[in-house]
Amino acid sequence: MAGQRRSAVDRSANSDLAAAFEDGSAYIPYLAVGDPSYERSKAYVEALARGGADIIELGLPFSEPIAEGPTIQNAIVRALEGGMSPELFFQFVEELDVDVPLVCMTYYNLIYQYGRTAGDGPGPEAFVEKAASAGISGFVVPDLPAEEADPLRAACDEHGLDLIFIVAPTTEGDRLERMMQRVSGYVYVQARLGTTGARSDVSDQTTASLDRLADYDLPKAVGFGISGGKQAERIVANGADGIIVGSALVDIVADGVENDEPTEAVADRLETLSRELKAGAQRGYEARQANVDAK
């Protein structure tokens, strides 16, 4: 890391998320917890870890996922129909046998309502406390912009958890600054406008976003639309510190449901794609280093 750096506010939060970026090419997969059932989902998440995941984003399904494309919407419907709830989500996290930091990705209403369930009245504190004790390291909340995030940020600081924000292609100037004052762990760089979903190209918007973030001293992970090793390689070679992959993995789960495949077969495919993505990210990092050395 060279050049002039602007540091985000020091949260000295939780060291696992930063540590996950040490090799310069973090692989961060996403699955909706409970898709298509509690037990299968557990086997799938464990397969991601075997496939080389450095962090795993666990989706806690919300009934109105406005930032998701059709693939993840359908996964969320399957998970909700399978009975997934915040309580079961925490049980799932506690039972999970993986040695990888876990990030909870969900919508604000579930975080906000948990306090009511816990008897505290609505607010994020009870959810964050429970998540911390279950073993969650941080949160991504797609419908919570920096402007509304102070209560959750405060609760995260109290329990030593990270709060990750999504930087969109349209995020710049004051908005970017406001967000960078509140972010910790890593920055989720949204590769293009729109919703989640697997695609095969690399957007110019990604490079522009990475350039805008170059001065900030926090790992940048690019997500939205990454589906294969080649793409992962190009994105990391272009300056990303990691890649986030959701829909391409959820597609495998959906295929498994559609073709009635056994759990192990689906888990194997998830592990195989994970290895490909991680290897692609690593090649991208090597290419970037070679480029730096050449200069």
Binding site: F165, I166, A168, T171, L193
Partner: peptide
């Protein structure tokens, strides 16, 4: 308030 995905915030502003 304004509880929307980040990509929409500039449009909302």
């Amino acid at each position: 308030g304004q509880y929307v995905p980040e990509a929409l915030m500039p449009a909302i502003e």
